[in-house]
C-alpha cells in the first residue's frame, strides 16, 4: 500500500517536472529576444528539476542519499537565479537592446550610409 502511494507521488511529480521542462523549451524557442528567453530558463527549468528530484526523494526513502538530493535542490535554487542574472548582465553591459512590441518601439529613421549604434537600454 505504502509502495503504491509513494509510486504515485513520484510519478505525479516527475510528470509535472517534465511539463515544466517542456514549458522552458517552448519558451526558449518561441520568445523573441535574449532577455525574454531568460524568464523560462530561470523559472521553468529550476522548478522542473526541483519537482523531479523531489519525486525521486520519495523513491529513495530516508537515508544519506536523500540528503544529497536535497543538497542538489538547494544548490539549484540558489544557482539558477544567479546564472540568469549573470547571462542577462553580460548582455546588458554590452548594450544589447531588448526587443519591444512593434507598437511600443520608438520609430527609428533609417538613413543611407549611417550605421545605427545601439542606444542605452
Amino acid at each position: 500500500m505504502a509502495d503504491v502511494v509513494t509510486g504515485l507521488l513520484t510519478a505525479t511529480l516527475c510528470l509535472m517536472g517534465v511539463v515544466f521542462f517542456l514549458g522552458g523549451t517552448v519558451g526558449l524557442l518561441r520568445l523573441p529576444d535574449l532577455y525574454s528567453r531568460l524568464h523560462p530558463v530561470t523559472k521553468g527549468d529550476t522548478l522542473g528539476a526541483t519537482t523531479i528530484i523531489l519525486g525521486l526523494c520519495f523513491q529513495s526513502g530516508f537515508n544519506p542519499d536523500t540528503l544529497k538530493l536535497f543538497a542538489i535542490i538547494a544548490f539549484l535554487l540558489l544557482s539558477s537565479a544567479t546564472c540568469g542574472h549573470a547571462i542577462g548582465r553580460s548582455a546588458f553591459v554590452r548594450k544589447v537592446r531588448p526587443w519591444q512590441t512593434p507598437a511600443a518601439a520608438p520609430r527609428v529613421e533609417k538613413r543611407e550610409g549611417e550605421s545605427r549604434g545601439l542606444e542605452e537600454a
Binding site: L34, G48, A49, I52, I53, L56, I72, L76, I87
Partner: peptide, 25 residues
C-alpha cells in the same frame, strides 16, 4: 547572440543533471 547559446546550454546542462539522477535509480 552568444548569450542565447549559453541559455540553451544551461537548459541542456540541467536536463543532464536530472537524467543522471534518474539513471541513479
Amino acid at each position: 547572440t552568444a548569450q542565447d547559446r549559453l541559455i540553451g546550454v544551461n537548459i541542456i546542462n540541467t536536463s543532464v543533471l536530472v537524467v543522471l539522477l534518474l539513471s541513479f535509480f
